[in-house]
Structures are given as structure tokens and as C-alpha cells.
Design a protein around this nucleic acid. Structure first.
Lengths: 219, 219
DNA sequence: CGACCAATTGAATTGATTCAAGGTCCGTGG
DNA sequence: CCACGGACCTTGAATCAATTCAATTGGTCG
């Protein structure tokens, strides 16, 4: 995928962050100011077994949260885009690992003891739980086409674009997120193209031609 | 499945609760005393769209948390056994619904504002998140046999029995939890029987003959 | 240009599902 | 007490969706 060393426009990011999640801006306000570190594509932000406890805010780029089985099969739990917080863990160690997908600017949120802070964290954790539960339905009960439709519909909601999605992750990542193989991802995209629901102008862009039909496919 | 109107021995339940999760006993201590209500098998505890906010403690029996697709396919997110807390929701409404599996005694935990209370809730929510994330791997990346092995291994850890598991839920529930059909569940159990990893003395009991082999199957 | 990696496409295979037929268990009522 | 009915479970055979294996294309970078 393309390497994107430069940051996006900061103002746009701040705006989208506020719009997307009031709890995040609250968190940032209460957290200690902290430098943004940049992670090159496919580099680790934290690893399985690393000590947990800190939360991370995506400022630019995309992050994937992954788990692997003993024999190396990978499941991507979630992708995180600018304005989203990740790093939640029940225990003292991370059971999953986080990687930069396409080059990501990450701000560490250092815990500041305070009433509002804990409340925001709980809310974010519950949002994360809700998303994850939703993903269970996708993995457990949806066909390949429905999975892809749900994925694109979700992206469309999170990127407030006019129907032109950017796909920062490669097919392999999408496959591991949807519980498929990358060949199947490729074939399903073709199916959707043939049905005139999407266009693929570039390999990392998808134009949504019929959002309603996609949403119907996976509701 | 069998109908079990009588409660189990209260002392045993309290003990297992303390052992299983210190945060729960903390919660109970801080929550207002509240009556235990009994839900007959297959009855709703809360429904999709119901107002969220209260948490529930399983005292006896088993609870399932479910979601359904538009066309009626069901995904069971989790089962909950005595001593476990459920009911977490990010928004104001439940996006999933909870049902008694085999007749369940449930205590409502009314929120008591207080420092320790909020902290315990966060910890429980994060545990719930961790379990759910673990389930993603199962649904997305495991074969039917591995799924069943993981399910049995998980039950074995949560019921601290000597290898004789009680299966309060029926095959259909197991199927919807593992993302399979009930026929496949049945066939997989036969496979494990034929490999001498389990015995099925009764339809609602499974004896684990080789826990290590089962654990190896799904690690 | 050539090398390399990702993505696409095709053909064969397979794991799980679907459809269908029995079997088991249990409660009910004659 | 036994026969019947119904719900759940098991098992078999056929089917199918997705995977695996393999070949090719496309794009990027040195």
C-alpha cells in the first residue's frame, strides 16, 4: 500500500474528532499533554504480552488490533482511524497487539486521576465492547458478501466522505478482519463491482455507488 | 433441556463468586441490596431496544446474550454463569438481548455512586471486552473442531469441576455461540468422542477425558 | 528494464451446510 | 402402565460457499 509520511491537515482531524466522540476530546482535555509519535507502516505500537494500562489516540493514519493463533492464523479485531482510542485491556498485559497499518501518528493518553476521566474511559471501553459484539455477528453469521457489505457500510459511516472511501489497509488485512481469505475478498469486490454497487478507481479507494443496497445486504 | 426450579446451594455459589472475581464481590458490597428474581427457561431478562444502564448478576443458572440479523439468524455473544455480571451497553438502549437458558436467578445491581464502584465496573467491562475479543478469533479463524475444543476448554475453566461438565444449553445454543449449525455441533461431538477426548454420559453432560488434548486443539 | 509484492482470476478441493430420515428422551393422557 | 406426541438430537447423503493451489496481471521501486 502507499506510504504516507506526511500528516493530514490538523484542523480537519480535530474537527472530526470532536464530531465523532465527545468523550475523546474530554479525555484529551484531562490527559497530560503528550507528544505525538509516528509509526511507520507495519510497525508495532505494542506487542502481545507488553504491559498494558496506557491508552492511545489515533491522530493520523490507521491502526490494526490483532490476535494470532498458535499456528499463525491472524484475526484482526478492529481498525482504528483518527480520533479513535485503543489500548483497552482487562489484565496487566496486552493479549492483542497493535500495529500501524499505513503510517500512523499516535498520542499516548496518560491517565490523570479524576472523576470525569474514569467516566470517559468507561464510556469508551463500552463503545469498544459494543463494536466488538457487533463484529461477532459478522464473523459468526454472515456470508462473504454480507461481511464485505457490512465492512464498507461501516467505513462509510466512520469516514464522513461523499462516497469515496479510502482503504488504507491491504486485501490481506481486510480478509483477516472479516474472517476470509484475501482471494475471497478480491472475488467479493468483483461481485459488488459487477452488481454496480461499487467502483474501484484505485486499489486503495472504493467508490460507493449504492450505499442503500450495501446497507440492505447486511442489515 | 431439563427444567430446574430449585436453586443451588447458596454457600457454594457465594464461594465460587468470590474465587472467580474479586471485583464482583466488591460490586455487590457497594450495590444496594436487591432481591433475586427467577427467570424460567427461555424467558427474556431484557430485550433489544430496552433501556440500558443496570447491570445484572447471575446467582443461579445460565444466561445467554444474543443478537439477531434482519432475517433471523442468531449469534450468541456469550453465556454467563453464577457469579458473572452482564448487561453492559455503550448507549442508552440494549443492542443485544438477554435470556435465561435453563432457569436463572438474577440479582439486579443498582448503581451506587462511589469511587470504587465505578472502578469495579470498568474492570468488569474490560474483562467482558477481553472475552469478546477472544471470541472473535474463535469465530473468524477456527475450524468447527477447534471451536468446540475451545468452548469445552473454556467451560472447564469456568466451572471448576473435576472434568464433568454440565451443559445447560442445548445444541442449537452452542451452534449459535460457535457460529455453526446444530448438526455440525452434533457431528463434532461425535468426532471428539471417537477420538476418546470426551464422553457424553447424558445429553447435558460432557466428561472431559483429555483436557490437554482439547487445549492443544485450540491454542 | 527487471524484480518484487500485491491483487486478480481460474480450477479443484473441502469443510460445513442443507435437506431428509430416524432415534431418543420425556411428559401427558388414555 | 403404556402408547402417543413433540421437542431435541443424531446420522447420512447431496450440495454449496469458501478455501486452496496455481497461474497471471498490475503496480512500484531500485
Amino acid at each position: 500500500m502507499f506510504i504516507q509520511p506526511s500528516f493530514r491537515h490538523p484542523a480537519a482531524i480535530d474537527a472530526s474528532m470532536r464530531v465523532r466522540n465527545a468523550d475523546v476530546s474530554c479525555l484529551i482535555g484531562e490527559a497530560q499533554a503528550c507528544a505525538i509519535s509516528y509509526y511507520r507502516p507495519d510497525t508495532a505500537i505494542y506487542g502481545q504480552g507488553d504491559p498494558a494500562g496506557t491508552l492511545y489516540l489515533v491522530v493520523t493514519g490507521t491502526v490494526r488490533i490483532c490476535q494470532v493463533t498458535g499456528d499463525g492464523r491472524r484475526q484482526i479485531n478492529s481498525f482504528h482511524f483518527p480520533g479513535e482510542v485503543f489500548g483497552f485491556e482487562a489484565g496487566a498485559e496486552h493479549e492483542s497487539y497493535a500495529e500501524s497499518v499505513d503510517g500512523a501518528g499516535i498520542r499516548v493518553l496518560r491517565p490523570v486521576s479524576g472523576e470525569g476521566f474514569g467516566h470517559s474511559i468507561l464510556k469508551l471501553a463500552l463503545q469498544s465492547l459494543g463494536r466488538t459484539q457487533h463484529h461477532l455477528v459478522l464473523l459468526g453469521r454472515m456470508s462473504a458478501v454480507e461481511k464485505m457489505a457490512a465492512f464498507l457500510t461501516d467505513l462509510l459511516e466512520r469516514q464522513d466522505s461523499d462516497g469515496l472511501l479510502s482503504l488504507p489497509m491491504q486485501r490481506n488485512d481486510i480478509a483477516d478482519y472479516l474472517g476470509l481469505t484475501f482471494e475471497t475478498v478480491s472475488r467479493v469486490l468483483r461481485t459488488l463491482k459487477d452488481r454496480d454497487l461499487i467502483r474501484v478507481p484505485r486499489i486503495d479507494q472504493i467508490e460507493i455507488l449504492d450505499a442503500d443496497a450495501l446497507a440492505t445486504l447486511c442489515e
